[in-house]
Each structure stands twice: as C-alpha cells, then as structure tokens.
Design a protein around this nucleic acid. Structure first.
Length: 486
RNA sequence: GGCGGGGUAGCCAAGUGGUAAGGCAGGGCUCUGCAAAAGCCCCAUACGUCGGUUCGAUUCCGACCCUCGCCUCCA
C-alpha cells in the first residue's frame, strides 16, 4: 500500500523494516488524560485504528503501542485544583478514554504504557543523552536538550518539520525558567521540581522533578518497539515540536542499528473543523464523544462521520454530517439485513425466479482494497461499498439472489468491515407482545379493517417498533436504532 | 515573517490531460389499503479568479483572491 510519509513529504510504498516477517511496529501518540477527549482527538485515534486494521487486513501482524500521558502541566494544574492524588485524578479520565475508545469501535492497542510508570526508562534515556554531551543541566536545575550539540554531532534537527531554527518566531511570553536555556529552542527533558508541582515529582540524578513532554514518547516507544520501528502516527499539530523533538532525542541517543532511522514512516492526520469553524468552547462547537451520545448519536455514526474524509484533509464535522451518516448506515443495514434473510432461507424459497445458486455477486473486496491501498482513500472505499449495496439491492428487488450468493456477499462484507469497523445494526427480536400486535394487525388487514390496522400500527410504534409491509410480509424494526446501541 | 493544507453541485466528499465517484438532501417512480427511517431512477456544459502550455485542463505552469492550520499547550 502507499502511504504519505511526512518525513519525505511523498507518497511511498509501505514496507516495514523487517518485511520478510510481515511484522509492523506502530506507535501512536495517545491521550493526555486531564479531561474528556474531544472529537478532534477522536479523529486521530479513529484514523490510527483504520490504518492498523487495514494493515492487518493486508496480512501484517501489527504491534500497536499507544502511550498514556498522565503527567503534564495541565494535569498538574487540575491535581492542584482538586487536591486529588495524581493517579486518582488521571485514572478517571483514562477510564473514560478507553470507554469512548471502545464506543468508537477502535481496537485496543497491544500496549498502552503510562508515562508515570516509565520514569526509570525516561531517566536512563536522559542520562544517555547527558553522556553523549547533547543534554545539559541548566542553572535552574532542569535538564535540556541541546539542539546545537545535537547538530554538531551530525543530528539533523528540523528534518521532519522542515524548519530552520533561525526562522522560528519566538513566543512573546517567555517564562522565567526559559531564560536558563542556552538557546531558546532547546527543550526540557527533565523539569526541576517547582512549588506549583505540589506532590508531583520523582527523584533523579539531577534532583527532584518530572519528565519533559517529548521524552516520554521516545522512552516508551523505544522500550516497547525497539529503537527503530516502522510507523509513528499522530495529529498534524504534533509534527512540530513534539515529533521533531522526539526524533532528536531518540536519534541523539544513537541506539538505532547502523543505517536505520528512529522511525521509517511518519504519518499525520489532519485537524477537523466543526460546523466549518475551528472547534472552540467559545463558539459552542466543542464536542466530546459524550456530548454527541447525549444528542442521540451512536458510536458507529460518529465513527462513520470521522471516516467520511481522507485522513490528510481537513474534515468538516457537522450535525448534518452525523445525520447523513445515520442515513447511509441505515441503507447499508437494510441491505445486509435482507442478505441475511435470504442466506438463512432454503434455496427453493429464496428466489422468485430461478437463478443458478453459484451466480456470482458483485465484488466488494477488490475495489475496496484498491481504494485503501492508495494512501487510505476512504472516500473511494465507501464509494465501493455503496456501489456494491446498490447492485445488491437491484438483485434483491429482482428476486435473483440465491442463498449461496447472499452468504458469499455477507462474507465479503465481513472482510471489509474488519477494516471499516462500523458493523451493522443488531438484529433484535421483537418482544412477544409486539409480535402479537403485528399478528393482529395482519388479521385486520386481511379483513380490510384498515382503521384497526392503522391503530395497531400506531400502538406498535408507541411501543418502539416500526412495521414495514413488504411483499414477503411485514417486517418489524426497532425505532431509532441508534439509541439502542453504541 | 517562515512553513504547510484547502477552494468540485444545497451540504459532506473522491478523482482524472480528453468533457466529473460516493453519501446526505431534493425530484420522479415502484411496492403498498395507506405507509415506510423500503427499493429503483434522475440530479454539476463543469471543478475560486485571470492568464499561459496543449489538438484538448477542473486536472500541468504562473499570478491573484479567499480560507484553514502550524511556528506557543494542542489530535
């Protein structure tokens, strides 16, 4: 498959370092657990999930690692405000994160290491950088990464973000501790303990303090995937400085085998807009997943919406889009549901017209795969899905679908849905009472008592079920299917 | 100021040097006693503006306009 590598700014044929083993080592920058994740965060995680699933679909064995940032400025501030112990505070949002993760049908990464549980690895990495002379302890007690020394040692700072240091606009507000750095662009590896940190600190060879932001990802990714791995994912905003600094630290430590970079492919997801504007609390378009669930949308509808555009393009996330997602999924569900009905029926009853049981159905897997191989062209992939649905609907309407074909079609869907992860509506069996009412309604219809039939339909509707009369008899469907599932 | 995305039908969103996927909405029809959150069909002389290259450009080049983002915590 082809992937756009931020490092080379080109579409490249994806091939893992150890291509003969079909093994892919993938790291995705995870959440900072200081609050509920918002829909913009979720776009990145759903994108990472899509890539992982597609790699697995292609036969790779993926080792997926996602860090949990559970120590960081915002968290410390909240800990100070609430008076809760650090772990108690972060545990709550970490749990919420994984709940939401599951609601969006994201496959759980194989490892989800926490920063606070890797302090020894972080210290060891900083120590290594100190030994190599590219980190220094400043008068303020903090340890910084020296970009100058790194470059003198052959490091190429700016290779990912394609920036030149002298072109950086220095922020107007410079915090007091920043004066301690040798060069403004140097970044903290270890932050010396300060009063604002309260109880959040660890001992280290450089005194009490806490890790800098970027170092945890270097330490944890290299611990769980080795010093050189295949894929590193994240939101586009992380390109600079986070990922740039991660490369500097990781390659600065020089643990990679000769000829190997820290990461082979850097892949970044674009931001999203909400209702055409940048998401912000003041505009009232800031949503967490929970906000959307409270509005009656399901996880699969949100997932579908987040997967409605290419990962490198800005996506406009809207309420209209969620409604469109609901309709599109209903269309898909209807088709799959009919296929299942046919597949479970004896062959001689299924077709209103004789049809060879081996009559091949339209192909979904191949056009889907072709689309996804092109840098995850999800829009083209959906087009393949809905072209397939239309063709199946034609055949279903014409009564030329054999049980064998229906089964084969469902198998194709299962393969494709292993990547898309939208599943299908749960087939619920109506309760006895509803079945009885439906039965009564049929009797009323037979006797032309349509007033009674309509009254019964209303009664069924009030109980939460919809009756659809089809040539094959009435079908019962739960009303607002989205509220019955996530 | 530096760097990078975008501007395609009412909305969302693919794509191609030879006259535009898909989804939603809309319209028509079918089925139905009536319905349906059911099915089918239709739905962009044209892809920000102006030039250029070309037999031919939405697709390549240039300029311009608009818009979003990163450069500071950030998915």
């Amino acid at each position: 498959m082809k992937l756009f590598n931020t490092l080379t700014r080109q579409l490249e044929e994806f091939e893992p370092w150890d291509s003969h083993k079909r093994e892919v080592k993938m790291y995705c920058c995870g959440p900072t657990v200081y609050d509920y994740a918002h829909i913009g965060n979720w776009r990145t995680f759903v994108f990472a999930d899509l890539l992982r699933r597609f790699l697995e679909f292609q036969g790779y064995v993926v080792r997926h690692v996602m860090n949990i940032t559970d120590v960081e400025d915002k968290i410390i501030r909240r800990v100070q405000e609430t008076g809760l112990p650090l772990r108690d505070y972060t545990a709550r949002y970490e749990a919420a994160f994984f709940e939401d993760f599951a609601t969006l049908r994201c496959l759980r990464p194989h490892h989800t290491p926490r920063a606070t549980e890797h302090i020894p690895e972080i210290i060891a990495l900083i120590q290594r950088l100190m030994e190599r002379g590219i980190a220094y302890q400043a008068p303020d007690g903090s340890v910084y990464f020296s970009i100058e020394k790194y470059q003198a040692a052959g490091g190429r700072y700016g290779q990912l973000a394609r920036i030149q240091l002298d072109h950086l606009r220095v922020g107007e507000r410079v915090r007091s501790d920043e004066y301690a750095k040798e060069t403004p662009a140097d970044f903290a590896l270890w932050k010396a303990r300060c009063p604002d940190d309260g109880p959040v600190f660890w001992p280290s060879p450089w005194g009490e303090g806490r890790p800098g932001w970027h170092i945890e990802c270097s330490a944890m990714s290299m611990k769980w995937l080795g010093p050189s791995f295949d894929l590193h994912l994240g939101g586009e905003d992380l390109i600079f400085p986070h990922h740039e600094d991660e490369i500097a630290q990781s390659e600065g430590a020089g643990l990679q085998p000769p000829g190997r970079r820290f990461v082979k492919y850097w892949v970044h997801g674009a931001f999203l807009l909400v209702e055409g504007r940048k998401m912000s609390k003041s505009l009232g378009n800031f949503y967490t997943l929970r906000d959307l669930l409270a509005r009656g949308f399901s996880g699969r509808e949100v997932r579908f919406t987040l997967l409605s555009g290419h990962y490198r393009e800005t996506l406009n996330f809207t309420m209209d889009g969620l409604h469109a997602a609901r309709q599109a999924l209903t269309r898909l569900d209807e088709c799959l549901s009919r296929l299942r009905e046919i597949a479970n029926r004896p062959s001689h009853e299924a077709c209103s017209r004789p049809v060879p049981p081996t009559e091949p159905g339209p192909d979904l897997v191949q056009p889907f795969t072709r689309a996804m191989e092109e840098d995850l062209n999800i829009s083209a992939a959906w087009a393949a899905v809905f072209d397939w649905v239309r063709e199946l609907n034609r055949r279903l309407a014409a009564g030329t679908m054999s049980p064998a074909t229906a089964s084969a079609m469902l198998q194709q869907w299962d393969q494709v849905d292993a990547v898309l992860g939208v599943g299908e509506r749960a087939e619920l069996t109506p309760p006895e009472e509803i079945l009885r009412l439906a039965q009564e309604r049929q009797v009323a219809r037979k006797t032309q008592d349509f007033a009674r039939a309509d009254a019964l339909r209303e009664q069924i509707r009030a109980a939460g079920w919809l009756v659809e009369d089809t040539p094959a008899g009435p079908r019962l469907k739960p009303l607002s299917p989205s509220s019955l599932q996530t």
